[in-house]
Design a protein around this nucleic acid. Sequence first.
DNA 1: AATTAATCGAGACGGTACGTCATGTCTTGAT
DNA 2: ATCAAGACATGACGTACCGTCTCGATTAATT
Lengths: 189, 189, 189, 189
Amino acid sequence: MRGRPREDGIDGAVRRAVKELLAEAGYAKCTVDAIAGRAGVGKAALYRRWRSKAELVFAAVVHDDAMAGPADTGALQGDVAEVLAVIKSSLDGPGVREALPGLVADLRADPNLLAGFGERFIGRERAYLIEMLDRAVARGELARRPDPVAVHAILLGTVHTWIHLLGEPMGPVRALAPALTAAIRTLGS
Amino acid sequence: MRGRPREDGIDGAVRRAVKELLAEAGYAKCTVDAIAGRAGVGKAALYRRWRSKAELVFAAVVHDDAMAGPADTGALQGDVAEVLAVIKSSLDGPGVREALPGLVADLRADPNLLAGFGERFIGRERAYLIEMLDRAVARGELARRPDPVAVHAILLGTVHTWIHLLGEPMGPVRALAPALTAAIRTLGS
Amino acid sequence: MRGRPREDGIDGAVRRAVKELLAEAGYAKCTVDAIAGRAGVGKAALYRRWRSKAELVFAAVVHDDAMAGPADTGALQGDVAEVLAVIKSSLDGPGVREALPGLVADLRADPNLLAGFGERFIGRERAYLIEMLDRAVARGELARRPDPVAVHAILLGTVHTWIHLLGEPMGPVRALAPALTAAIRTLGS
Amino acid sequence: MRGRPREDGIDGAVRRAVKELLAEAGYAKCTVDAIAGRAGVGKAALYRRWRSKAELVFAAVVHDDAMAGPADTGALQGDVAEVLAVIKSSLDGPGVREALPGLVADLRADPNLLAGFGERFIGRERAYLIEMLDRAVARGELARRPDPVAVHAILLGTVHTWIHLLGEPMGPVRALAPALTAAIRTLGS
DNA sequence: AATTAATCGAGACGGTACGTCATGTCTTGAT
DNA sequence: ATCAAGACATGACGTACCGTCTCGATTAATT
């Protein structure tokens, strides 16, 4: 016997409720009870799916369809511009802006969460970058592949810090592409 | 009537207690009650000195001598290396590593805190960078002064994200100086 | 169309499970889920038979043969002793001791339940007492029939309170018969 | 250093809130949150004073001023009438009627509570009865002192069961005094 | 034999209460 | 006016229970 299967609509309703509440009220006011109420769902259904509020919000906000796949523009600077756009969209969507700092803070407290985040978010982005760098090497734009961690820090870091630490509006991300491409070229020379 | 003057040893005892608790248990377990207990101090004494837990931990963890002043090395790349070193030391000290994500999260929740932090930390660093960039323009290394916010995002972002988001050990920061200098040159050309 | 008939063994398995859980853990820990699990039965099967946990436990714990029928001993004091014995056996069986206070509490909360209980348990006992009193009047032992509610309160109350409120072991119930018979005689004089 | 002393008004405000809620909505709706809200008190203040909801309601409902002291009327039947009145007032006051079944149920679950109840309520009442019986023996109304537990069961049980189990309105308790006095006389002959 | 319909165990669902914990404020008596 | 101690209001968290509902499988009586 398998028992009653989990209802389909709940995951979606919860994700929607989380994003709405984050946008309306911020991470602090985004209560588990409020989420359940907004989604028309009992708290038990939430904790059956996610082990804590952090996991719940994380799952709602880190959308799986981000980083769909590497886009090959034929030149390193074009690829960098693409990556920057994807990174920005994944850090600046509705809800993410408000949630991310709180989420990153919760990561430190829960090793399980940290591992999941590293694997699902950082790891996938890293793989994308490695492909991009390897293509540039194959094309002859880079003499050797630079340390992917350093490249990751430069690209993700610039966008993430601009949005979440400096607190100033960020213009079009493409404007950064030439400068950051130059940095990558220096690392790969 | 001036009343009893504030006791001297409290600030130091509190800073020590905060750092110990951060190292032992992380930001979440670093409770205000725990801090007061560890420091042998009443909570009122804490809130008489700092307005919130975030201010308290911030004061305990960010050393004021971090941004002592701009060091003029005579060349842009040297200045960048200096700045990176200062940034890293201010983000990677004992306690900061554990505290910073939680601190940044609290910042979002409280606009007052955000303003204070922006002024005291971001603003000072920004001023430092502007001096550095102006010197490079004067020297002829840059055709014009690039947007300081962008430069700030690149330098602070790379270090901050490497340490606090990627979760991988960061090598000597000087190795990044050439690449990030190249980025700045591109922005200022 | 009649569909699949109810399985035979379920009632018995449930009663056994309820009694075991009451004895092991008391009324509070005697959860509906625990009962279902112990009896190897789904919760739906329980709620198909009884409308609430209170009904379920009540049915499991109160044996229907308790109030089999009035026993005519030929004298009021003998009848009282019989009634007391029946009352005690219905309040002191295995499981009842642990369950009754919780059951009575649930009764207060649900008027439907209260009505059902009153009819099935109190009412039947009351009818028995009325028969007994009428026989005594017919015999000439009582001048008139006293208020059956008062008699009920005296007989049931003494046993019920001794067992469930005073918390002290109760000796043979026959010892009480002369005293309580005297009380009834006073009421009926 | 002793710290801030507990506020005086809280105990009283809580007791009042509990009684009001019990009278308005019954034991089930008498939530801890509702009590705290009605009393204008935080939940922490409640759990600082009582370890559970049961202890809280118990303290609010079992008033210490009940059973102020034995009243000597000069005759056993008068004393019995007095005791019955006191017992009834302690079981039928505002709030008690609704709370008692739930409270008695909770007693079974918590041995600490059971001990407290036995000592503070049953024990005090028992002592009262013993005095009453000894006076009757001294007066020559009884040949010997009957078992106080049996007397307790008869007096408390009749009233308690009438109110809380039979669910019928109880007339003036004095009407029971002659009958129950006869029972006691029989036990003490 | 095929259909129909009520049952079965398993377990997810909404609702609601509980008891714990953290923050920032306030109140003692003492210094 | 400050100190240590600790009580206070507020409000979120995660757990537990109840009674309902849904699933696929099983079982008989009716077609």
